[in-house]
Amino acid sequence: METNQTETNAETLVALQKLIDVVAKLRSPDGGCPWDLEQTPQTLTPYVIEEAYEVVDAIKSGDQDAIAEELGDLLLQVVLQAQIASEYEQFSLKEVAEGISQKLIRRHPHVFGDVSVESVDDVRRNWEEIKAAEKGEAFADTQKLSYKLSRYTKKLPPLMATMKISQKAAAVGFEWENIDGVWDKFNEELTEFKQALAEETPERQQAELGDLMFSLLQVARWCNLDPEAALQGTNQRFIQRLQKMEVFAERPLTDYSLEELETLWQKAKVQLAQEE
């Protein structure tokens, strides 16, 4: 068994080295790909986010081939970022791998050291204490609610971060007494948003839009609804109806008037409802 595992590890390293070589070739000024050569860490950021979401979607689907493919796309982003950094002598993939390995060893003293733990809570506390020490922060400060909530804004998409922030705030008592208060807040923010659109600067309008969206997500939380799943479902339905419209259309959609498009939309909506 140990021999088989060693062989598998060796094969994995060979495959990883091949990927590194392929990416290096794509970035080579001598015969590389013009598109890849134009990329910077900043221009690739959207792809990192996109690929991460596609990994999550594949995992939800349970399709093992899709999961493997999407993980490969995400791995490509890691290797590509490291390749670009190495070209500017900032860091390499070696340093990335060594860094995460050292971090895992430091933060798991119950596995790699002589620390004893009795529960998952012990593991979590050790992790947070070690993390705080690494960053030169006082552990007590990292346990404050504001500190914890600020991390959500850094590591989660805004929609998910809002739900996490409001859930944690509600858990310590920063909450409405009933859903009527939630609706009152939503209506208040809606009024302020409308006023901002009519009278305020774009900056104020955007701020009020954020407040309105935050309050709407509180309604979702109180009703035990998943806003991400809700919005994803709406996106899918919109695309499905658009596909039906294209099936019914006898010419490009751009050649139709708004009234004609609405007729096609309603026809598509009815057809999809009948197919359910």
Results as ranks from 00 to 15, higher is better:
residue 2 E to T: 06
residue 3 T to C: 11
residue 5 Q to G: 00
residue 6 T to H: 15
residue 7 E to H: 12
residue 14 V to I: 14
residue 14 V to L: 14
residue 24 A to L: 07
residue 25 K to E: 09
residue 27 R to E: 11
residue 33 C to L: 02
residue 36 D to I: 00
residue 41 P to Q: 10
residue 43 T to A: 10
residue 43 T to H: 01
residue 49 I to D: 04
residue 55 V to C: 05
residue 76 L to P: 00
residue 79 V to A: 05
residue 86 S to H: 08
residue 92 S to T: 13
residue 92 S to P: 10
residue 94 K to A: 08
residue 99 G to Q: 10
residue 100 I to V: 10
residue 102 Q to L: 15
residue 106 R to A: 02
residue 107 R to H: 10
residue 108 H to F: 03
residue 109 P to S: 09
residue 109 P to Y: 05
residue 110 H to A: 03
residue 112 F to K: 11
residue 113 G to P: 01
residue 119 S to I: 08
residue 123 V to L: 07
residue 127 W to H: 14
residue 132 A to C: 10
residue 141 D to P: 00
residue 142 T to L: 05
residue 144 K to M: 09
residue 144 K to P: 14
residue 144 K to H: 00
residue 145 L to Y: 01
residue 146 S to N: 08
residue 152 Y to P: 04
residue 156 L to W: 02
residue 156 L to N: 04
residue 161 A to D: 15
residue 162 T to N: 00
residue 167 Q to H: 07
residue 168 K to H: 04
residue 170 A to P: 00
residue 171 A to Y: 03
residue 183 W to L: 13
residue 188 E to H: 13
residue 192 E to R: 02
residue 193 F to T: 00
residue 201 T to P: 09
residue 204 R to G: 00
residue 205 Q to R: 14
residue 210 G to W: 10
residue 212 L to C: 11
residue 213 M to F: 06
residue 214 F to K: 08
residue 219 V to I: 10
residue 222 W to V: 01
residue 223 C to K: 14
residue 225 L to G: 02
residue 237 R to E: 15
residue 248 F to K: 11
residue 248 F to G: 00
residue 255 D to W: 02
residue 260 E to W: 05
residue 262 E to T: 07
residue 266 Q to L: 14
residue 266 Q to A: 01
residue 267 K to D: 12
residue 267 K to G: 03
residue 276 E to W: 07
residue 276 E to Q: 06
